[in-house]
Simulated assay, not measured.
Amino acid sequence: MLRWERGTVSAVTSSWPGVDRLEIDLDDGAGTLSAIAYEELTGRPRAGEQVLLNTNAVRRELGTGGDAMVVARTEVLPETADVRGHMVKARYTPMQTMVDALDDPDSEHYETVREATGIDGMPVVVADLHSSLPAIVAGIRARRRSARIAYVHTDAAALPAVYSKSAARLREAGLLTAVISAGQSFGGDLEAVTVHSALLGARHVVGADVAIVIQGPGNLGTGTGWGFSGIQTAESLHAASVLGGVPIATLRVSEADERERHRGLSHHSSTAYGRALLAPVHLPVLPRTDSRYNSFHESVRKQVKSTILKPAKKRGVLHHLTEVDAKGLRDALEEMPVRMTTMGRTLAEDYASFQYAALAGRCAAEHVRGAGGGSGGAKGESKGPKGGAKR
């Protein structure tokens, strides 16, 4: 269902690369709305232009409905950008866009991607929530400050990669080397047809030390066991595993979420890692010897063992509960140039959410080839080659 409305741009209220947020005066004096315009799809509307809007989410007051979406400028045709390739994203929608993908035969990177057979043990951090991205980056950089980090934006939530202010700011600050939009998502520095080819591109085109794979903003949940967009984490971890990477699964935890199913360890992590995963992964947790270890962390550990490790083991998948030193992570999180929020909660209001994401990042840094041991390291309760299973 689409809800159509028309209006006139009265102002550009904010912008970041690829995106303008506009104030729209609706026709017939029906008030004003905030609207998003994507440069790749509509060009850049300016004050005085009439626009056609999709307002279905904002009128339903959905979590993804803070803005209307500009569908077209009714009196202006944007300039057409030339692309070498012929890969189409958002296929068979009115807004399908053609991109130059890494794995397109016309791409300058095609031979590199075609010849690549794996990702050479590159650690790959996968998370459910997009809000984990800056925390994972903080964790990586707390151990490997100069690491080259590629972010793979998947297509389970927001399709336009440019919608992410966090990714844009991390790119501008030089903390992300590249954003690769995979699957039906589009708008990254590089495009890929699948998560698999995005990971190959991250390693062999970008030269990344670490890849982070997360859906964009707009996580979709239903309260049912399997109906949540973050289930895609399982497939992303499978991709990392089959390509010879080190798969690291970020635990989604919360001390402050009012919903019981997300308090402590989220059922999203339990389902994706305990029931959907067919490959072993690292599950980073706080060590019991840490001075900050308390009943909450003990509860999370017990939940991980009962809802992830135990059911996975019954299916022959031996995950690795990996203890990661949290020393210095609070400072690393507070130093990030991106405001930390998850589900509207700040770093101070729900520190554990970001702490566990940062633990996953530090775990990845410890698995970068050439990274030495020493303090701040990761220690697994079970061992296996490159995060592999003991068979």
Rank of each mutant, 00 (worst) to 15 (best):
D189F: 10
F228H: 13
G274E: 07
L278K: 15
E191N: 03
P280Q: 01
E260T: 09
A202G: 06
T250Y: 03
T194S: 12
G218T: 02
A211S: 02
G221R: 01
G230I: 03
A256Q: 02
T289D: 15
H204A: 07
T233C: 14
V281T: 15
L237W: 06
L251I: 11
H204Q: 08
V193C: 04
A202W: 04
L237I: 09
L237G: 07
V242H: 15
G227I: 05
G244C: 04
N219Q: 10
V193E: 08
G221H: 01
G201C: 06
I231T: 09
V213G: 00
G223K: 00
L220G: 14
R259C: 04
A276H: 04
E235N: 03
A249F: 12
T222N: 03
H262T: 08
R259V: 13
E260R: 08
G218A: 02
L220H: 10
L237H: 07
S197D: 15
V193K: 09
L200I: 07
I212V: 14
V213D: 00
P247S: 08
G230V: 07
S270N: 05
R203G: 11
A198D: 05
N294P: 07
P280F: 02
H238A: 14
G218S: 02
R263H: 12
Q215R: 15
G227F: 02
E255H: 08
L190H: 11
T250S: 11
G227V: 04
T289S: 15
E258V: 14
A192T: 14
R275L: 14
L237P: 10
T289Y: 15
L286D: 11
L199K: 05
S254Q: 01
L265D: 00
R261A: 06
S241N: 12
P284Y: 11
R292G: 12
V195N: 11
E255P: 05
G221V: 08
G274L: 09
A198R: 01
G216D: 01
R275I: 10
L199I: 04
A276K: 10
S229C: 05
S291Q: 15
H268G: 01
L286V: 13
D290N: 14
V281Y: 09
A234C: 05
H268K: 01
T224H: 07
L277Q: 01
D209G: 06
V246N: 08
V281M: 07
I231Y: 01
G225R: 10
R252L: 09
G201H: 03
T233G: 13
V246H: 11
V246S: 07
T224F: 11
V195Q: 03
A198H: 04
A198I: 05
R252K: 12
V281F: 05
D209P: 03
S197Y: 15
